[in-house]
Design a protein around this nucleic acid. Sequence first.
DNA 1: CGACTATTTGACGTAAATCAACGTAAGTGG
DNA 2: CCACTTACGTTGATTTACGTCAAATAGTCG
Lengths: 249, 249
Amino acid sequence: MLDQVVPHRPQSLLATSSKSALNIAQNLDQATRARWEAALLRSETSFSRGTCFAPAGDLPSRFFVVLEGWVQKYRQLPDGRRQVTGFCLPGQACDLNLLFQISRRHALAALSSVRVASLDRAQLLDLIDQGPDLKEALLRADMIAANMTSEWLVSTGLKSAQERVAHLLCELFIRQNPFLIDPEVGLPATQAELAEATGLTSVHANRVLRDLRMRFGVSTRNRKLQIPDFGALAKYAHFQRGYLGFDDS
Amino acid sequence: MLDQVVPHRPQSLLATSSKSALNIAQNLDQATRARWEAALLRSETSFSRGTCFAPAGDLPSRFFVVLEGWVQKYRQLPDGRRQVTGFCLPGQACDLNLLFQISRRHALAALSSVRVASLDRAQLLDLIDQGPDLKEALLRADMIAANMTSEWLVSTGLKSAQERVAHLLCELFIRQNPFLIDPEVGLPATQAELAEATGLTSVHANRVLRDLRMRFGVSTRNRKLQIPDFGALAKYAHFQRGYLGFDDS
DNA sequence: CGACTATTTGACGTAAATCAACGTAAGTGG
DNA sequence: CCACTTACGTTGATTTACGTCAAATAGTCG
């Protein structure tokens, strides 16, 4: 009954379906998954677009899991400059800092209307104590998330603006559509937010998107993302899905 | 007897000494630490500066710990562009990908002459099975390393070249000298390597270093780094040590 | 409808890349 | 010891990518 919070095709329907290590529930056995989902549903909250529901800086007090909508992790400097360091999609835990009691330097904000579940440390530890599987799944997911950050660093550090934006679009496309079945996927982020995620200004991001539209037919209208020739764009952006934690390749 | 491989002042000598979560051995009790260090010494290897001893791409076959010297994690695109994604200093594990059997997208290379220890998966699992402490220490250290990557992403994404290089120098300074006791620390990386770590060309990194030398008295001569007024540089670079995993602040 | 918020375009300035030398220290072999 | 090599650092001239400032257009939601 929690399946709706993870709006992917149910695994059973697709012979070729693969699970992603990012999605916690997909990596649990029946019993553990039931406990996990029950705990999440008990602590559900909603936030409207733009709301920052977890500030940066101090030791985090809650652990968040996205149920519906997108969350962005970002860092803001005193002078106002912002850098988005990751997007969290449904099924994903935002970070594991609470578990290790490590201070969280990024803030969490709702990128669209979101439903999130949040646990305090005692609840999280209690769940984890009921068997090793959940902890393993959380750790794996967090390692994948770290891989993604590293991938963004590589993108931002050595690729052109075009390649960077293309890479981000490829990532967001594949995360929602690992088998390229859907012609389009959701894209709640605005151009300004895509810019903050790629280290560009919104003006330049706009021009880059126009460029990618002309060269690859990429469309980002109406909160939807279309990539007609995914292979071409992926090649151009040096995108390889290996880091996203799917159980295939 | 392994103390020499981690060339810091012994903890006992300094009332104010703090341990870093990055340094695995510092976070183990006596018995676990002894097993850990014994296992490392059994598998010691040396590499000369520039040697790439772990390629990127496939599932890693070995787990590496730095005993002496510096290691760089980097990614290289087919066209030759390189991005350094992290420096590993003595006492640090390079990555935990082998434990989770996640493919490693970065390569490991010796930045100076290095001694590293390497374990295969069986050896690593065997060590971990002897008690929960080691695994906990490894995971913590890996989370801190992930924080550092995220910090680099923020630096690279939204800071000026000057701030970025300054931030990196602050980080490297503090990691070797958490209490600002030593006037200078080691800096085996060349300007070209600092450039690759900050997303600049070596030419521009050179100019930026000259600029920082004039403005803050920073010196990077002879593989040594001096930062006379650390506070000023840290403020300029928006550097805050909180993400480095020291048990204080 | 009006008040937003998001996207798009233009003109211009600046930071950083690129290309091309040249300097300098450290090592190597005769 | 000197000639030679190699790696690293430094500088200048030029080009390009990207940021900044400003304004117009297009959606979106009450």
